[in-house]
Amino acid sequence: MNLRLDIKILKLWPKLVDHYSAIDSHDLRKVKTLTVDNSKVRYLSKDEETRLRESLKSCDTAFLEVIVILALNTGMRKGELLSLEWSHVNFENKILTVDFQNAKSGSTRHLPLNTQAFNTLKNWQQKTGEVGFVFKDKNNLPQKDFPYIWGELLDNAQITNFRFHDLRHGNPPIFNGGYL
């Protein structure tokens, strides 16, 4: 048996005891499970980031470089990026808005665009148009997840144990674009 299965069985005991009336009374419901910090935070080293950027340049999937550059520079989540619409990008004020409906927190956020993020988005808009989703498929629907392409990119960059989500942790926009 493994630890996960053992824990599941232990959590079932109070229900089983009640169901089969095996014990007249018990305090098993008062037993608290230990909380475990399962958060995984992985940062790119400078060398890894350099290799990632080099691999992006040789990648033939057009949107990938743009979405990774934005993730690195804004700290946006993948779902927020994939649901981003051009109407949420304010080039005049260099602000990008994450709509509350697409934010994990449920709150609208306004993110400053540093020079790299701004230029990347501006160039992408010239290539793809300025209506609808920023990242769209050939049917103008939001781009779907891209695990295979992401995995291939990491393999080419020789980066292991790194998720797209980890891009959020490396370069907070407040430091990245000199907003302080």
Rank of each mutant, 00 (worst) to 15 (best):
L72F: 07
D99H: 12
N119E: 12
A103D: 06
L141V: 04
L82P: 07
D145R: 05
S83E: 12
L72R: 04
K122G: 00
N161Q: 09
R42M: 06
A62T: 06
L167A: 03
D37V: 01
N93I: 00
D145W: 08
D60S: 11
L3V: 07
T50K: 14
I67H: 08
K104T: 04
M1L: 13
S105N: 10
G129R: 08
A62C: 05
T35M: 03
H165E: 00
D24N: 09
H88N: 15
L44Q: 01
Q125W: 02
A71P: 14
D166H: 12
G129M: 03
E48K: 04
F164W: 07
C59S: 15
R109H: 11
T35K: 14
H26P: 13
F91D: 01
Y43E: 07
H169Y: 15
K40G: 08
R4W: 07
Y148K: 14
R53I: 05
L56K: 02
T97L: 04
Q116M: 09
K138A: 13
S58I: 08
D137C: 12
I23R: 08
W13C: 14
V36Y: 12
T160L: 09
L84G: 09
T97W: 00
A22L: 15
N102E: 10
K122M: 03
V134G: 01
K144H: 15
C59T: 09
V131S: 13
T97R: 11
A62H: 10
T97Q: 06
L5A: 12
L84M: 10
N93W: 00
L96I: 00
Q158E: 15
L10P: 13
V41L: 14
L44G: 01
T108D: 01
T115I: 01
T61Q: 12
F164A: 08
F175I: 09
P173N: 08
